[in-house]
Design a protein around this nucleic acid. Structure first.
Lengths: 139, 139
DNA sequence: CTAAGTGCAAAATGTTTGCATACTT
DNA sequence: AAGTATGCAAACATTTTGCACTTAG
C-alpha cells in the first residue's frame, strides 16, 4: 500500500525521538504535534498522519480506534517485537483507557477456532478487546 | 440522558417498520434514510440519528463502532429478547470490509477466560475481531 | 395550547488530499 | 537533477446542533 520511507528527514527523526521516549504508551496524532512543537521542530499534522500511517504499514506502530469521536490511538511497538509474537493480545479499558498487553496462549485458541469453524483468519495485531479492567471494576 | 419517546410520529413508525422488517441485520443511519424514502415517508437524518440514539438508550437497538471511517452500525434487538447478548461477536474483514455477525458459544469462553485469568470484563458489544474472511482468503 | 418532534443547513471533528514548495540523496 | 517529503488549506464524511416550524396530546 505504502512505500517505505526512503529519506531521512528531521521531521521523521523527531517523531522517532518521541516514540522512543514514551514507549508502550498510547498517544494521539496531536500529542505528537505538541511534543514536536515543544521540541522546537514543529511538524504539520498531515506529516504526522502520513508518517504514522506508514509506520503502521511497517508494523512499527499500532493504531487503535477507541471510539468514533475520539482521535485514533497509536502505540509504538519497539522494533516489531509484537508482530512476531503470535500470542500477544491487547485489552483496552473503556473506563481508564489503559491498554493491557496480554501474552496468553489460551487466546491463541480463539484464532484457531475462528479459522476452523468460521473460516476467518484473525489478525491479532489489529484486534483489541474492549472492556473494563480489574481496577476500574472495583470502583 | 435521553427522555423516552412520548409522541407517536409517523417518522418513528416507519423507522420501527424498518427495524421489524430486517431483524438480525446490521444497518447504518443512511440505510434507514433510504428505506424510509423508498417507502414514501422520508425522514431527515437528524431525526434518524435522534431516534436511534434514543432507542440505544432504551436498549432496543445496539450501536457498534466498526472503524473510524465507516458509519456506525446499528442492530435491532427485538424488545427485551436480547438476541445479541453474550454470544454475539463481530468479525470485520480487513480486505473487503465485510462485517460478519457471529453467534458462537465457544467464543463466550474467551470472555470467561479473560474475566477469570486476567481480571478483564469483556464488552462484546464493542469488541471487533479483525482479519481476513473466507472469501478474501481464497483470492 | 404546550411540549415534543422534525428538518434543514450549518457546525463540529479527526483525518485525508491536492498541490506548490523544500529537502534528500 | 530526480524523486520524496512537507505544509498549508481545502476537502471529506459522519454525526451533532441551533433554530424555526410542525405536530401530537
Amino acid at each position: 500500500m505504502n512505500t517505505k520511507s526512503k529519506y531521512k528527514t528531521k521531521q521523521r527523526e523527531v517523531l522517532i525521538d518521541y516514540l522512543e521516549n514514551i514507549p508502550e504508551a498510547h498517544f494521539t496524532a496531536s500529542d505528537v504535534c505538541e511534543y514536536c512543537k515543544s521540541k522546537g521542530t514543529p511538524i504539520g499534522q498531515s506529516t504526522v498522519y502520513r508518517q504514522l500511517e506508514r509506520m503502521v504499514d511497517e508494523g512499527v506502530v499500532n493504531k487503535y480506534i477507541i471510539d468514533e469521536k475520539s482521535p485514533a490511538c497509536f502505540e509504538y511497538v519497539a522494533d516489531g517485537t509484537h508482530i512476531s509474537g503470535e500470542n500477544c493480545f491487547h485489552c483496552k479499558c473503556e473506563k481508564c483507557g489503559k491498554l493491557i498487553h496480554l501474552h496468553c496462549d489460551e487466546l491463541v485458541g480463539i484464532a484457531a477456532h475462528l479459522e476452523e469453524h468460521h473460516g476467518f483468519t484473525l489478525n491479532p495485531m489489529r484486534t483489541v478487546f474492549y472492556g473494563i479492567c480489574e481496577e476500574c471494576r472495583e470502583l
